[in-house]
Structures are given as C-alpha cells and as structure tokens.
C-alpha cells in the first residue's frame, strides 16, 4: 500500500495581493497621464451620485472630469451623470458588492486619459467591502448621511480608517433625525486623526465649498 505523506506548504502572503498589484498598475497609469482619481464610498442612498453631480457642476469650468459608475445593476446613475456633460462609464458588478482593481483596469481605456484631470469612481453602496479593495485611487472619500445614524464609526471602523475625507451629508435633515454630528466627528477622528471632515447638504447645496477647495488643492498638487 502506498504510504500517505502530509505536506505543508507555507506561503504567508497577502490574500488580496492580486488585486493590489492591478490597483498599483492603475495608480501608475493615472499618475503617468496626470489624472487624479478619487474613490467615493458610502452606504446605499447616502447621496454619492448627487454629490458627484454637484461636484462636476462646480468644477467643470476648470477641470475635465470623468466618472466611473459602479452599481450591482442598472444604468440609472450613469444616465444622471451623463446629463451633466461629463464622460461616464458604467460598471455593473452583477452581484459583487464592491469595485476592484481589475474592474477599473478593464474600463479605463474607454476614456482618453490625456484629456482628463479628475476621475471620480463611484463605488457600490456598501460600508464594508469597498474599504477592502484598492482600485488604484489617490484618495478614498467617504460619504455618510445623518439619517444613517451616529453609530457608524464604531460599527464600520475600517472605512473611516481608510478614507482621507469624510463628507457628512443631509445636514438639512438634522431637525428631524436623532443624530449627533459632534459624535460622528469625535469618533471618526479617534479612528483616523488625519480625516478631513466637511458637513454638507447636496440637496440644499450647503457646505460644499470646503469640499471643492480641498479637491482643487489636491488637483494643484498632483
């Protein structure tokens, strides 16, 4: 009878290494073409698409902006963005709850990157998975709307830790919901002291100037 040996193969490697490699290629491509890429992440319904519409409207005089729309299905958001005049590509993940480096690299040649200054990537609405997957962006931007509640930093710390900017949206609804912006600020900064926080209302177009200025400053430095 054949003797059975047990063989142990030791690897100790990052499980998402393949994704990180592709994301780094994307990042290098963006840098070579002088494109700044931001990855916008939030829960469903926090207002990502409206934020992008407002941002395009405010900055399109000075910058050429393109958008990658990530959704599980539908082209509803992409149509809204197309109406602003910005070039847009829709990715339907077909069930996947986040975008990854490979999805971005597969669509990026649909843009003429030499003509683009700012690439906005709208991730799938979800507070967990998008924070895990590097897509090759320069900055991760998180949007949290106050009806979601002020317990989110504690419940979803990774996304707060990974983001460079936190936009607290729908502040016009503060009189109607039990949510402490002060608590969100305090707890987010505990998780990530370098986080830039802006309180905004996309609907009322309030508080957005600080966000635009932040973007413009980063664009100048790119």
């Amino acid at each position: 009878m054949k003797e059975v040996f047990k063989i142990k193969v030791t690897l100790v490697k990052n499980i998402l290494e393949a994704n990180t490699r592709i994301a780094e290629q994307n990042r290098k491509l963006f840098a070579d073409r002088n494109v700044m890429a931001i990855n916008i992440m939030s829960a469903p319904g926090a207002g990502k698409t409206t934020l992008i519409e407002r941002t395009i409207k405010a900055l399109k005089q000075n910058f050429e902006i393109a958008v990658i729309e990530g959704d599980i299905q539908s082209t509803y958001d992409a149509e809204k963005i197309a109406a602003t005049g910005a070039s847009v590509v829709q990715i339907n993940t077909g069930g996947a709850c986040h975008l990854d480096g490979n999805m971005i690299s597969e669509v990026v040649d649909q843009f003429d990157l030499d003509l683009i200054d700012l690439l906005i990537i709208e991730n799938v609405g979800n507070l967990v998975c998008p924070a895990e997957f590097d897509v090759g962006e320069n900055f991760k931007v998180m949007l949290l709307s106050i009806p979601e509640g002020d317990d989110k930093p504690l419940k979803y710390p990774l996304i707060f830790n990974e983001s460079s900017v936190l936009l607290i949206n729908k502040i016009d609804l503060l009189p109607y919901v039990d949510c402490s912006v002060e608590k969100i600020r305090r707890e987010s900064l505990k998780i990530n002291p370098d986080l830039e926080i802006f309180e905004i209302s996309c609907r009322k177009e309030e508080g957005l100037v600080g966000w635009y200025k932040w973007l413009e400053k980063k664009m100048e430095k790119r």
């Binding site: 059975v4 040996f5 063989i7 193969v9 030791t10 690897l11 100790v12 490697k13 990052n14």
Partner: peptide, 12 residues
C-alpha cells in the same frame, strides 16, 4: 488589519 494566507496542508 492582517489578511494573510499562511499555509496549507495536503498530500499527493
């Protein structure tokens, strides 16, 4: 923040 594949054990 670890996310590592450490090892696996198998046979021929």
């Amino acid at each position: 923040k670890e996310l590592e594949l450490v090892e696996f054990e198998g046979g021929v």
